[in-house]
């Protein structure tokens, strides 16, 4: 089963919009924190002018924190830039690990707001894939979304990637409430994975629900 063309365009646009909105929120938070640190530095300098001694250790911590926020913002914009470029090409050769790392970081806020956290475990090597990177990222996002609806309270979402032979497997799993299975919620994900020449396998083992996305490697 493949996705109808207009619906595919709509789905891709919605995904891009969702990630874009999350990143803009994230960046606004980073800028707000930088603003508060700058404001606090200014407050301390104004107080120093009135005779209050400057705490040099505090100043060092503040400048270190400022630098950390700038680094966080830079990394976020770089990830979003790479993600945006994947929407330009239908098919390209890419490192699956790098792409999964990026999309996991981009959906982190979404997962956190749902009261969970992502635990990402990636091998320390390249896995080359020639495919549609944007749709593959959508598949990861969709699988995480399906799992979030089934997870028990506070349980993490585990994301793992492995490759064997000519197939790479992305496993998205977590401890789910008994009887709470994704059922019909996977139909769109199955359609997208079909278009990517891959599969989705849903399994339930000892309280852990897993969605395994398999795609061919180069």
């Amino acid at each position: 089963m493949n996705e109808a063309h207009p619906r595919r365009g709509q789905r891709r646009l919605a995904f891009f919009g969702r990630i874009g909105a999350d990143i803009s929120h994230e960046m606004r938070n980073v800028l707000s924190v930088i603003g508060e640190y700058a404001g606090l530095l200014d407050d301390l300098l104004v107080l120093a002018e009135t005779g209050r001694p400057l705490d040099h250790a505090r100043l060092k911590t503040l400048t270190k924190n400022l630098a950390a926020q700038v680094k966080k913002g830079t990394e976020t914009t770089e990830r979003f830039n790479r993600f945006s470029h994947t929407a330009e090409e239908q098919t390209a050769s890419f490192d699956l690990i790098a792409v999964v790392e990026d999309v996991a970081a981009l959906v982190q806020r979404h997962v956190r707001l749902e009261g969970h956290r992502l635990e990402v475990e990636l091998p320390n090597r390249e896995i080359r894939v020639t495919n549609n990177a944007f749709d593959l990222q959508y598949a990861v996002f969709a699988a995480v979304g399906i799992l979030l609806k089934c997870l028990e309270k506070d349980e993490p979402v585990a994301v793992k990637v492995d490759a064997e032979g000519s197939t790479a497997a992305l496993s998205i799993s977590g401890r789910a409430a008994a009887g709470d299975e994704p059922g019909g919620r996977t139909s769109r994900l199955v359609a997208v994975m079909n278009e990517l020449g891959g599969t989705v396998n849903t399994s339930w083992n000892d309280g852990t629900l897993s969605l395994v996305l398999a795609v061919p490697t180069d």
Binding site: E36, Y37, G39, L40, L44, L47
Partner: peptide
């Protein structure tokens, strides 16, 4: 956003 909450608090305390 922990950094924001605690820095705001520090500025109000000042």
């Amino acid at each position: 956003e922990e950094d924001l909450a605690f820095t705001m608090a520090e500025r109000l305390i000042l």
